[in-house]
Design a protein around this nucleic acid. Structure first.
Length: 876
RNA sequence: GCGGACGUGGCGAAACUGGUAGACGCAAGAGACUUAAAAUCUCUCGGGACUCCCGUGCGGGUUCGACCCCCGCCGUCCGCACCA
C-alpha cells in the first residue's frame, strides 16, 4: 500500500542497512569493468561535519552513483586527515591524549557521514594518524632521501609564535599563520626539505595537460611556481673600493635590455658583500641589523618604505669599464630570490624608481614608447614598463626590447672575465623547496637518528613505524617530543653508540599528499602502494573540494606523485585528472540590538507587508537580519547537518545543496529552500504512487500501436533523460535538477489527463517507462527516496544496483519543429514545420504568414536567413 | 601594483557553438478545498503608455541577429604581491 506521506527517518536507516548488508558500494581491485575513481577531499576530524562537507560529499556521491549505474567499477573511499594542531590543543585543554580526541571525533563524524547515505566503500577507510598509515610515509621519506629528493639545510623559516612551529611559504597568508592567524616571524633553523623545486619546470609544463582542471587553479599554480627567464651577470668591483677578498658582484635580471639605464646596484641585507662591507663600516652594520629587525615580520616588510645604504663599493658597468655604479644595501632586495643582488634601472621599474627618487640618483629612460619623441621622453614618478624602441643605449639604439635583450645576452655570454663568461642565461623560479619540519607532537615522526659520530643516520626500514610515544606531556614550552624523557634516546643504527631521534614531525600536508594512492590498496602492510593496483585506479577521475587548496594541497600532491614515481611506488605523475572546486555554503547573519550574534535555530522569521522580520523564539526580542556570509562559528550563522537530517532527512539536505546555485558558486542556505526541497520529496512520492497504480507491470514490452499521448510521454521521458545525463556529466547539478523537475511536472500533467480519458496499453507502458526513468534520474541525488519509490514501482532489487536507463535519441526528437520567426531581428511569429523541411519550403511558408505580409507591406524582403531547425529572420 | 572571475526579475538562477532572454525553483499575490490551520490543487508574477514599445552594469562597435564577439568605462569578489 502506498503511504500518504514518505517518512525519511524510517526509510533512510532501512536502506542504509540494506546497502551495507549487500556490500553494494564495495569496490574490488580485480573487477574487470572499466574503473572510475571519484574522490572528495577528506575531512579533518574536527568534531562534527558541517554544511560544507554535506555539499562536497553530496556532489561526489552523485558522480559515484551515476558512474556506478553507467557500468563503471567505481572507487569512492573516505578517510581522515587526522594529524594536526587542534587535536593537541584540545588534548591540552581536556588533559587527555590527542589520539583520544581524534578517534572520538572520527567515530562521530563517520556516523554523520553514514546518515547522509553516501555510497562509500568504508572497508578502505584510513586515518593518517594511524601507525599503519604513517609507517609507509616514513618509508617513503627514506626512499626520497635515498633518491636525493630530501634536503637538510639551515634556512630562514617562517615561525608561527602562537603555534610555536615552522610554516611553509604556502601556509603564510597575508603575513599570518594559516591556522593561528598570528603574525609570522623569520627565524633561522635547520630543517628538512622536500625538493619540490626539482620538478619546478615539469610542474609548470604539465599544467597544460590538466584540461579538466579549473583555469583559475592552473593559473594560481602557474603564478606560484613563478618561472622567469633572465641573465646572471657578473659585475667587476672597482679594486679601490672592494672589501678584502671581494672582486665581483653577481646579479640576476630579466631585463638585460635596460642595462644602459642602470643607476645603482643593490644587495640584500643578508648578502655576503653587505656583511663584508659592514666589517669596516659601523653605520652600515647598524643599517643591516635594522633591516633584520624590520624583516622579522612579513607584514611590516610589505608596508615598509624603500630604504638603502651606500656601501661605498663601486662596480664597473659591463659595457664601459669607466662607468662606475654605486652598490647599496637595500631593504627590498630578497636574499632568497635570484642572487640576492640586482642592478637598478629606475626608468623602467617602479620599485627602482621609488628608490632613486628617495635618494636623488636620477634616471635615464632607455625604452621609448611608440609615438613618443625620444629626445623629450622622460620618466618622473611612474616607471614605463611597456613596449618600445631602445634609446640612450649606444649600440642597442633603435632595437626592439627583444632584440636588445638578445644582443646584450650574446655579447656578455661571450665576454670572458677571470676565466669565465661574464653572463649566463638562467631560468629562475619563485617556488621554494618545501620545508616539512614541524616542532609539534601530533604528526608523523621524521625517521632520522642524529649521532655525534655518524651525523645524520636514516632509521632502518625494519624499525618502522617509529611510533609516537603515548605518554606525552603536552603543556610544555616547545616541542613535546623533545621534552619526552626517553623517546628520543636510541642507539645509533650505524655505530651503536648513544644517539637521539629527530624530534620534529612532518607537516600534516605530507599526510594528505598521497592518501588518494593509499586508498587503492589500504590493506597493504608491506608498502605504501601496490604499484600495479595504484596504476590501475589512478589518476583520480573526478576530485572535488574547496578552492582554498588550489595551491597548498594540490601542488604538494602533484609533487608527491612525481616523487613516488621516481621511487617506484607509482607509474604516473599527475594524480588528479579532473578537478572541481565547489563554492561555499553561506547563510544570513542575525544580530541582537547589543551586537550579539544569534543562531538561525534561535529565531523565527515573519514577512509583514513584504519585508522580513526576525525575532527571538524565546521572548520575541527583535533581531536584525544581516549580510549573507560564509557559515562560521564566530558569526553563529551555522546550521547543523544533524538537525536538518533529523528533521527533513538526508535526501532533502542533499537535494537542496545541489539545486539552486551552480556548484562552483556559493550556495545560500535558507529555511525556505530546505522546505521547498522537502515538499518536492513528498510530491515525488505521491506522483510515483499514482504512476504505480496505473503503469504496466515491470518488464512489460511496448505494445505495437502507441497513441499520440503515449508517444508524447515517451518523448518527454527520453528527452529529459538525455539532458539530465549530460548535465550530470558536466557536473551541472542545478540544471540537472531543473530537468528532473520538468520531467516530473510533465508526468504529473500526463496523469491528470488520464483520469478523464482512461489509460490505454500504450500509455500504461509509457508511464511505466517514465516512472522508472524518473526514479533513476533522481536516485544519485536522493538515493533513499529512490529506493522506496523503486520498490513501490514493483522492482525487487535495489536501484543502487540498477543500470542507468538507455536513452533513445530518436524518440527524444519530435518530427516537427517550431521555429521563431523574426522580422529585422525581433520575434514576430512562430511556424511549425517538418523537421526535414528544406529552406525553400520554410521560406515560402514564412512569407505567407500574416505578420510577415503586414511587415513587408507588399514589398519584397531584402533577405531571408533560415537557420535550419533553429530560427528564421526576415530582413524587410 | 599585477593577474583572474563575475555583473540577467523581489531572490537563487537558465539560455548549446552568435539564433524565441528569464527555463527550473524560492518569495509574493489571488482563488479552491477545510469549522480552522497545515498540507494539497488552480491561476498571476521583468517594466510600461500593453495589437506595440523598453529591458541582461554603462557607452560605443561588428552582425540579418549580441547576455554571448570586439573597444572603452563603472562596480563587486577572489588570488598574488618589494620575485629583480
Amino acid at each position: 500500500m502506498h503511504a500518504e506521506r514518505y517518512n525519511p527517518r524510517e526509510s533512510e536507516t532501512k536502506w542504509q542497512q540494506l546497502w551495507e548488508q549487500r556490500e553494494t558500494f564495495r569496490s574490488r581491485n580485480d573487477d574487470p569493468r572499466p574503473k572510475y575513481y571519484v574522490l572528495e577531499m577528506f575531512p579533518y576530524p574536527s568534531g562534527r561535519i558541517h554544511m560544507g562537507h554535506v555539499r562536497n560529499y553530496a556532489m561526489g556521491d552523485v558522480v559515484a552513483r551515476y558512474r556506478r549505474a553507467k557500468g563503471f567499477n567505481v572507487l569512492h573511499p573516505m578517510g581522515w586527515d587526522a594529524f594536526g594542531m587542534p587535536a593537541e590543543n584540545a588534548a591540552r585543554l581536556n588533559k587527555s591524549h590527542p589520539g583520544t580526541w581524534t578517534y572520538a571525533n572520527i567515530a562521530t563524524m563517520r556516523g554523520q557521514l553514514k546518515s547522509m547515505g553516501l555510497s562509500l566503500d568504508w572497508s578502505r577507510e584510513i586515518a593518517t594518524c594511524d601507525p599503519s598509515y604513517y609507517k609507509h610515509q616514513q618509508g617513503m621519506f627514506l626512499d626520497f632521501l635515498k633518491a636525493g629528493l630530501v634536503d637538510r639545510k639551515k634556512s630562514k623559516v617562517n615561525w608561527d609564535p602562537v603555534d610555536q612551529t615552522v610554516l611553509a611559504n604556502e601556509q603564510v597568508i597575508d603575513g599570518r599563520g594559516w591556522r593561528s592567524g598570528a603574525l609570522v616571524e623569520q627565524r633561522e633553523l635547520t630543517q628538512w626539505f622536500l625538493k619540490i623545486t626539482d620538478f619546478s619546470q615539469d610542474l609548470l609544463d604539465s599544467l597544460d595537460t590538466l584540461d579538466r582542471w579549473p583555469e583559475k587553479v592552473r593559473l594560481m599554480q602557474k603564478n606560484w611556481i613563478g618561472r622567469s627567464e633572465g641573465l646572471l651577470v657578473r659585475f667587476r668591483i672597482d679594486p679601490a673600493t672592494a672589501p678584502a677578498g671581494e672582486s665581483e658582484l653577481e646579479i640576476y635580471t630579466t631585463r638585460p635590455d635596460t642595462l644602459f639605464g642602470a643607476r645603482f646596484m643593490a644587495v640584500a641585507p643578508d648578502h655576503p658583500l653587505a656583511a663584508k662591507a659592514a666589517e669596516s663600516n659601523p653605520e652600515l652594520a647598524a643599517f643591516i641589523s635594522e633591516c633584520r629587525r624590520m624583516g622579522t615580520s612579513v607584514a611590516t616588510l610589505e608596508t615598509a618604505e624603500k630604504k638603502g645604504f651606500d656601501t661605498g663599493v663601486r662596480v664597473a658597468h659591463p659595457f664601459d669599464p669607466d662607468w662606475k655604479l654605486p652598490v647599496y644595501v637595500a631593504n627590498f632586495v630578497l636574499m632568497e630570490y635570484g642572487c640576492g643582488a640586482i642592478f637598478g634601472c629606475p626608468a623602467h621599474d617602479q620599485r627602482d624608481l621609488d628608490f632613486v627618487n628617495a635618494y636623488g640618483l636620477g634616471n635615464v629612460p632607455v625604452v621609448c614608447p611608440a609615438g613618443q619623441d625620444p629626445s623629450s621622453f622622460t620618466v618622473t614618478d611612474v616607471a614605463y614598463d611597456g613596449d618600445g624602441l631602445m634609446i640612450n643605449s649606444r649600440f642597442l639604439n633603435g632595437m626592439t626590447i627583444a632584440q636588445a635583450r638578445e644582443e646584450v645576452s650574446k655579447r656578455l655570454e661571450t665576454t670572458d672575465i677571470g676565466g669565465a663568461p661574464q653572463a649566463k642565461r638562467q631560468v629562475n623560479f619563485r617556488l621554494r623547496d618545501w620545508g616539512i619540519s614541524r616542532q609539534r607532537y601530533w604528526g608523523c615522526p621524521i625517521p632520522i637518528i642524529h649521532c655525534e659520530s655518524c651525523d645524520v643516520v636514516p632509521a632502518p626500514k625494519e624499525s618502522l613505524p617509529i611510533e609516537l610515544p603515548h605518554d606525552v606531556q603536552l603543556d610544555v614550552n616547545g616541542n613535546p617530543l623533545d621534552h619526552h624523557p626517553t623517546w628520543k634516546h636510541v642507539a645509533c643504527p650505524n655505530c651503536g653508540r648513544p644517539a637521539r631521534r629527530e624530534t620534529d614531525t612532518m607537516d600534516t600536508f605530507v599526510d594528505s599528499s598521497w592518501y588518494f594512492a593509499r586508498f587503492t590498496d589500504p590493506w597493504n602492510a608491506e608498502a605504501p602502494t601496490d604499484k600495479a593496483v595504484a596504476d590501475h585506479w589512478l589518476p583520480v577521475d573526478q576530485y572535488i573540494g574547496g578552492i582554498e587548496h588550489a595551491i597548498l594541497h594540490l601542488l604538494y600532491s602533484r609533487f608527491f606523485t612525481r616523487a613516488m614515481q621516481a621511487t617506484g611506488h607509482l607509474g604516473l605523475s599527475e594524480p588528479f585528472k579532473g578537478l572541481f572546486t565547489q563554492g561555499m555554503v553561506v547563510h544570513e547573519t542575525y544580530r541582537m540590538a547589543d551586537g550579539a550574534w544569534v543562531q538561525p535555530s534561535e529565531i523565527k522569521i515573519e514577512t509583514v507587508g513584504g519585508t522580513r522580520h526576525a525575532s527571538l523564539l524565546e521572548g520575541g526580542a527583535e533581531v536584525a537580519i544581516g549580510a549573507v556570509e560564509k557559515m562560521s562559528k564566530s558569526k553563529r550563522n551555522t546550521v547543523d547537518p544533524d538537525d536538518i537530517i533529523g528533521t527533513f532527512g538526508a535526501d532533502t539536505a542533499r537535494w537542496f545543496m545541489l539545486s539552486d546555485s551552480p556548484p562552483e558558486r556559493d550556495v545560500i542556505w535558507s529555511e525556505e529552500g530546505v522546505q521547498g526541497a522537502s515538499r518536492y520529496v513528498q510530491q515525488l512520492w505521491r506522483l510515483i504512487g499514482e504512476i504505480a497504480g496505473i503503469a504496466a507491470p515491470v518488464g512489460a514490452s511496448a505494445p505495437s500501436d502507441m497513441s499520440q499521448k503515449a508517444t508524447a510521454v515517451r518523448r518527454l521521458t527520453h528527452g529529459h533523460l538525455l539532458r539530465v545525463q549530460e548535465n550530470i556529466e558536466r557536473l551541472r547539478f542545478n540544471t540537472a535538477i531543473a530537468e528532473i523537475r520538468k520531467l516530473s511536472n510533465g508526468l504529473s500533467e500526463a496523469i491528470g489527463a488520464v483520469e478523464e480519458a482512461g489509460v490505454d496499453a500504450g500509455l500504461a507502458f509509457a508511464l511505466r517507462e517514465g516512472g522508472d526513468v524518473l526514479v533513476n534520474l533522481f536516485a544519485p541525488m536522493m538515493p533513499h527516496l529512490a529506493e522506496e519509490c523503486w520498490q513501490a514501482l514493483g522492482h525487487d532489487t535495489p536501484i543502487a544496483e540498477a543500470e542507468w536507463p538507455l536513452a533513445d535519441a530518436a524518440l527524444a526528437t519530435n518530427d516537427t519543429v517550431t521555429l521563431p520567426i523574426q522580422i529585422n531581428g525581433k520575434k514576430r511569429a512562430e511556424i511549425t514545420v517538418d523537421r526535414s523541411a528544406d529552406n525553400a519550403t520554410v521560406e515560402t511558408a514564412v512569407l505567407a504568414l500574416e505578420a510577415v505580409q503586414k511587415a513587408l507591406d507588399g514589398k519584397a524582403p531584402k533577405k531571408i536567413i533560415v537557420v535550419p531547425q533553429r530560427i528564421v529572420n526576415v530582413v524587410a
